[in-house]
């Protein structure tokens, strides 16, 4: 007991942590709670609970279409960004000395350029090359943003790879292609998987780039934004709650899988 009172730094650390958790979860919990509220405006106390809003949302054609569109773009972004990202990581991994650092810095640049700047420049770019706004342009924008994250994750794993695994494969008769697909790629597996999940989340969450590059068909963030502008309603809370649950599940599952593969 005495020890506990004397351990001020420890106690302070713990309290700050729990305050942070509260700060993190309070708004989210409110949002979720209101999505069950039996009234069309947001107020307290909650009163009667209902799942009517959920029923309404999942019959909302616009919402479903936006979901589908978001998933489609995310999937395409992920596929393209993963291939490019792994490729660049392998390239950087094979470089030596100063060139390696320069190449790495350039590859990371898109991740740190402010979203707005990147969005505007991409918009100017697609106009210049006469590419219409819409699906292709959105995917282009998302890929540019997602690649650095794949590169960093894959490169980190690549650096931890024992150098003589590749030597061993070559020694046993594999040429460089076979070595890549049968030894290097499986070794990078967990990192690539993590990178892919990251791409999915980045793309489906992106607003700024999509806003500048999109056409008339809205992605989910665009749709929610449009709805918010015409007034808050429990329907928006429902959509947000659904997004929250799906992302959390995907994120936790990914974490579980990478953890399991790390133990091996």
């Amino acid at each position: 007991m005495r020890a506990m009172f004397h351990d001020w730094p420890g106690l302070a650390l713990k309290s700050f942590y729990w305050l942070f958790v509260l700060y993190l979860f309070l708004p989210l919990s409110l949002m979720v709670a209101v999505s069950f509220k039996d009234a069309s405006f947001i107020s307290f106390p909650l009163g009667n609970l209902t799942i009517d809003w959920y029923a309404k949302v999942i019959q909302d054609k616009q919402f479903l279409d936006a979901c589908l569109y978001t998933i489609m773009i995310a999937a395409a972004t992920t596929a393209i960004a993963t291939v490019i990202g792994v490729w660049i990581a392998m390239l950087i991994g094979s470089l030596r000395g100063a060139t390696q650092y320069v190449a790495f810095a350039i590859a990371c640049l898109p991740a740190v350029v402010p979203g707005m700047i990147s969005a505007i420049s991409l918009r100017i770019f697609i106009t210049t090359i006469d590419l219409p706004t819409g699906t292709v342009a959105i995917i282009l924008g998302h890929v540019v943003h997602a690649v650095p994250f794949v590169v960093v994750m894959v490169l980190t794993r690549l650096r931890s790879m024992p150098g003589n695994l590749v030597d061993a494969a070559r020694d046993l008769g594999a040429d460089s292609t076979v070595t890549f697909f049968r030894v290097t790629l499986p070794y990078l597996g967990p990192a690539i998987f993590g990178g892919m999940i990251f791409c999915l989340l980045l793309s489906s969450d992106d607003f700024v780039r999509t806003f500048f590059l999109g056409g008339y068909r809205p992605t989910l963030p665009m749709l929610i934004f449009a709805r918010v502008q015409s007034g808050m309603s429990p329907e928006i809370n429902v959509m947000a709650t659904l997004v929250l649950v799906v992302t959390a599940v995907v994120g936790l599952y990914a974490e579980y899988l990478t953890r399991r593969s790390r133990i091996r």
């Binding site: 030597d167 061993a168 494969a169 020694d171 008769g173 594999a174």
Partner: peptide
């Protein structure tokens, strides 16, 4: 290395 008929046992094994 992949086209010569010798094989190495590496110091840290290098098992896949």
């Amino acid at each position: 290395p992949n086209r010569r008929n010798v094989n190495i046992v590496f110091q840290d094994y290098a098992l896949f």
